[in-house]
Design a binder for these strands. Structure first.
Length: 981
RNA sequence: GGGCUCGUAGCUUAGGCUGGUUGGAGCGCUCGGCUGAUAACCGAGAGGUCCGGAGUUCAAAUCUCCGCGGGCCCA
């Protein structure tokens, strides 16, 4: 039984096609088999950066999913074992905020009143609210990943692995308690993430005051500047720049003279017209360690010295006085400076932003409301030098509009600074795409790494696994559920989340007292950074699995993950294993709207991906995303361009459709016995050579993650080489009715090229390639294109010289067409000859091999080659390059004109066949009426006309039963009628 | 405010590392041609301050610096 191909529609509905393929993959478990088939081969390890499914997936998510997919499918086809496991990120503040909104809760107090148990239950539920949409979109876009068995960061196994890793860090003394200055909303009683802070900046006017601090050793004052008078209550130090020049000046204030110290560069601005006289100049470092009289005696200072002048490089001379007031409770740099110089700490403000009883006159007053009182006091005591107003941008709570306070909170840290060298060394082992990130954004970040503030005073997250003794203050980090059970004096819940875990009391090994868990949960970035081991429940289970899958060969996410997941993975892995967790990382650009503006819900410019799936299909979307530009560049999303990417798919489809159409007619059987390529004609050898060259280029590009280059090479091959040149030039070889060696060569060649293209394109366009492959394959071949090996170039099939010759011929053809166009002679009109003149003998030889192509394409009877330019008249000249020119003979004789007429008639008949929608193989009768000259032409080309149009009868006359039309050919009238025999 | 990145025709882009004929191409537009796979294709035309400015150089889209605009990250 000879192989026969299924018939196809010329106009294909990609969306329906894709739905069928999805069902096929489901039925046949193609994904699972594509992975399993490679078991035992070299692994290619991928880690999925877990998304949070508490919102709908948007185009940016789709981009990362298809980029992951194209690489993983490619590696699979290259023979690697590439298991892929989905993951879900399920903890964290964004989840809590969504639930707060739904419940109408605003503060932590309200959540506690509502009940942490119920609150967390709702959080857990919310993170899978859009799971179905995520799963659907993932499947629909063709991203193959195992979503039946995902890792989930809230499961007890995952949490236990995270606990184990934190205990490792704790055992090494890298987990410590300290203060962190965070942007804090006093009304919501919550620290805000930087992202939340960023959306709440407003321009406001604040007081701007210049305050005099009296030095103890001297009658001089340090003149400092601040826009937040209330923070003066927490003043611990003053800072000056060690290298800049400071001056001691006598300044006139009303009737008296003061001696002030400030930066020389700030003199004019700060003194604002006051009369002054410089009496001393020195570098800032000369002030180091000088003590001053505190402004207020309220603060209860612990843990170190106070009221001294310090030097610090961050002091700027852009504004103020060059003397900076330092309050460690209210500023991050302030806090860091005091900590590094062993200065003390004071926190006179409570978590609602009100002064505590440490400050009796201001007790219970909100800090911002205290500014006026404080300024008044300073004025009364004569230490307010100047007061003004100051316009600047200041952050407010996006939720309630309260001004945010920078506020020191107790926090747990991982000492990343001490791992700096290891982080940098591990980064050395990672390949970054694009490369600039390695030493740029990411490298710089590592150079200046800060300790990781790990804890969050929140509810829904992995509970921080540290217990503290009520009696002796001992700390203990629990590293497993087993350990927890052993040491607990109460029951251990199955659910390790708050509030249950908060009830677990441990016995203190030091003093026998009771230990309670600290209240914090951990940063959810630590959760996802633990994915390489926690997804395996390592080290409690799957130790071999983990070892085989660490480090990952490949991860990819959008560039905003540089300091997010890319960092948290490296941080955790360096702390625990001192190894890089991934070896190649591809950072992707973002999807912007057509105006180049970020897509966001609030702007309402987010494209509905389901509409794209339903209108254009997944392959068209994928192709658009792959070809839009380098993967690391932002994409301005344009639906019009997606439609354009369908053009390429149409061309690919039509090439296949052409093949199928004639292969069915001719009952072509693939793989009957392959004709050696060197026995085939030059067009066949050429297209096979081009194909193999392109295979090499595609592989090289994907290996560099230049996905866009690979895709564009393929597109160029399909459109230019295959469709517009090979098939167009070879069409007639398929039309010959009888069996022939040459026809068999053409069929075999086109079949092989299409099959190879399916495999080459399969990682990019998994649907259409699968569909075409299913029809083309025979039973010997794998039952899915995705189970095939990726093609590799066969060097012996690459004929660089032939490719070279052909590209020269293409140029000559273009030149010839231009010559015709200039002369106003259409291509259908045969001409007698064309002369190719070339001073380069080597080039001329290359053209000589392909003269037939030139003759056919230019529709001339003869092609002549010569070294010298001919001096003949009647020729029109076009230069191709310095050495190569084309001369087209534009003289017409009677014979040529007759042949041109006949071609026109054939063309009209073919058009009429199409109008009648006749089968390609249908035979017809033709009748015509015309003048004598045309009739003579028809008669002399009778056989040619019949062969071209499959006519069995061609005669003069008219028949009302036939389909007839009158034509104007040149200036002659011709009537033609046809009918099926 | 700082770091990174991008800016080429109406739109999407190649080229930029390694400076050197007239800065390529696709879509769209105008005109002409071709067409029995193709809503495809071919030819001609209109359309460019290569974001702006300065510098280096015999020579800059390309290298350097300073701006402007978009994006991301951080403050």
């Amino acid at each position: 039984m000879p192989q026969s191909f299924r018939k196809e529609e010329q106009r294909v509905d990609f969306v329906r096609l894709e739905e069928h393929i999805l069902a096929l993959w489901d039925r046949e478990h193609t994904f699972e088999r594509s992975v399993e088939q490679r078991r035992g081969r070299e692994p290619f390890v991928f880690v999925e950066g877990p998304p949070t499914a508490n919102g709908l997936p948007h185009p940016g998510h789709i981009l990362t999913r298809v980029m992951k997919d194209v690489i993983l499918r490619y590696k699979t086809m290259r023979g690697f074992y590439v298991p892929r496991r989905a993951g879900w990120d399920t903890h964290g503040l964004p989840v809590e905020i969504e639930v707060e909104k739904e419940l109408g809760l605003n503060t932590k107090g309200e959540i506690e009143q509502f009940g942490v148990e119920e609150f967390n239950r709702r959080c857990r539920e919310s993170v899978f609210r859009y799971e179905k949409e995520w799963v659907n979109a993932t499947k629909r876009v063709g991203f193959w990943i195992d979503m039946n068995n995902p890792y989930i960061t809230f499961t007890s196994d995952y949490i236990e692995s995270v606990w184990w890793s934190l205990k490792e860090i704790w055992k090494r003394g890298l987990l410590y308690r300290g203060h962190k200055v965070v942007p804090f909303c006093p009304r919501c009683e919550t620290a805000l993430s930087t992202h939340e802070v960023a959306q709440g900046y407003q321009d406001v006017e604040d007081p701007s005051i210049y305050v005099k601090f009296r030095l103890k050793s001297d009658s001089a004052f340090m003149l400092a500047w601040t826009t937040t008078p209330w923070t003066l209550i927490g003043n611990i130090a003053l800072a000056v720049h060690p290298g800049h020049t400071y001056v001691k000046v006598r300044v006139r204030e009303d009737e008296q003279w003061d001696i002030l110290i400030l930066a020389e560069a700030r003199l004019d601005d700060a003194l604002n017209g006051h009369e002054y006289e410089v009496i001393d100049r020195f570098r800032g470092e000369a002030l180091e360690g000088m003590e001053y009289v505190p402004l207020f005696e309220y603060a209860n200072i612990t843990g170190g010295a106070a009221h001294k002048v310090l030097t610090a490089d961050f002091v700027s001379l852009d504004e103020g006085t060059g003397v900076v007031h330092i309050a460690p409770a209210f500023g991050e740099v302030d806090y860091e400076l005091c900590r590094s110089r062993n200065m003390g700490f004071t926190q006179p403000v409570d978590s609602k932003g009100r002064f505590t009883e440490e400050v009796p006159p201001l007790r219970g007053i909100f800090v911002k409301d205290a500014d006026k009182r404080i300024i008044e006091w300073l004025r009364e005591r004569g230490i307010l030098f100047r007061e003004a107003r100051y316009l600047h941008s200041y952050p407010f709570c996006w939720r309630c509009g309260s001004p945010l306070l920078y506020y020191a909170r107790e926090s747990w840290f991982i000492a990343m600074k001490s791992l700096r060298e290891s982080l940098i060394a591990n980064n050395e082992k990672i390949n970054w795409y694009p490369g600039n990130l390695k030493y740029g954004r990411f490298g710089n970040f590592l150079e200046n790494i800060e300790d990781w503030a790990l804890s969050r005073e929140r509810f829904w997250g992995t509970p921080l696994n540290v217990w503290v003794c009520n009696s002796c203050g001992a700390e203990y980090c629990v590293g497993s559920v087993h350990e927890l059970r052993e040491r607990a004096v109460s029951d251990v819940p199955d659910d390790l989340h708050r509030p249950y875990i908060d009830q677990v009391v441990l016995r203190c090994e030091n003093c026998g007292g009771e230990m309670k868990r600290v209240r914090e949960v951990i940063d959810c970035w630590y959760d996802s950074g633990s994915a390489p081991f926690a997804q395996w429940h390592y080290p409690f289970e799957n130790t071999d699995e983990f070892r085989r899958n660490f480090p990952a060969d490949f991860i990819t996410e959008a560039v905003d993950q540089t300091r997010g997941w890319f960092y948290s993975l490296l941080a955790v892995s360096t702390a625990i294993f001192n190894e890089p967790p991934y070896l190649n990382v591809l950072s992707l650009g973002h999807i912007l709207d057509e105006q180049g503006v970020k897509m966001s819900k609030s702007r309402g410019n987010v494209v509905d991906i389901n509409r794209i799936f339903n209108n254009d299909g997944a392959d068209a979307l994928r192709w658009y995303l792959f070809t839009a530009g380098p993967p690391h560049d932002d994409i301005r999303f344009s639906e019009r361009d997606i439609t354009r990417s369908k053009k390429f798919m149409n061309t690919f489809w039509n090439s296949y459709f052409f093949f199928i159409t004639y292969a069915i007619i001719d009952r072509f059987i693939p793989h009957k016995e392959a004709i050696p390529v060197d026995k085939r004609n030059y067009m066949d050898r050429w297209v096979i050579s081009r194909l193999n060259t392109v295979i090499g280029e595609v592989i090289e590009a994907i290996e560099r993650f230049d996905v866009h280059v690979a895709a564009r090479r393929l597109e160029e091959f399909v459109v230019n080489d295959l469709s517009n040149w090979y098939i167009r030039r070879s069409r007639r070889r398929f039309w010959i009715p009888e069996e022939s060696f040459d026809k068999e060569c053409a069929y075999q060649t086109l079949y092989e090229v299409l099959m190879t293209l399916c495999k080459l394109l399969a990682p990019f366009l998994p649907f259409i390639t699968e569909h075409i492959y299913q029809n083309l394959r025979d039973t010997e071949q794998p039952d899915s294109v995705h189970l095939c090996d990726y093609p590799t170039p066969v060097e012996s099939l690459i004929d660089a010289e032939l490719e070279d010759s052909m590209s020269m011929v293409v140029k000559l053809v273009e030149a010839g067409r231009r010559a015709r166009s200039d002369a106003g002679i259409k291509i259908r009109q045969p001409l007698s000859d064309v002369v190719i003149a070339c001073s380069d003998a080597d080039k001329l030889t290359k053209v000589r091999n392909l003269m037939d192509v030139l003759r056919d394409e230019l529709n001339v009877r003869a092609v002549r080659l010569c070294v010298e330019h001919p001096a003949a008249t009647g020729y029109i000249r076009v230069d191709v390059d310095d050495t190569l020119s084309l001369f087209l003979n534009t003289q017409l004789d009677k014979g040529l004109i007759a042949e041109g007429l006949v071609r026109d008639i054939v063309r009209r008949v073919q058009g009429m066949r199409k109008e009648l929608d006749l089968d390609y193989t249908a035979e017809i009768r033709i009748m015509y009426e015309c003048d004598a000259e045309v009739e003579e032409a028809i008669e002399s080309f009778r056989d040619y006309i019949c062969a071209e149009t499959l006519a069995v009868e061609l005669k003069r006359g008219k028949d009302g039963h036939m389909y007839g039309r009158s034509w104007k050919i040149g200036d002659r009238d011709v009537y033609i009628a046809i009918s099926e025999r």
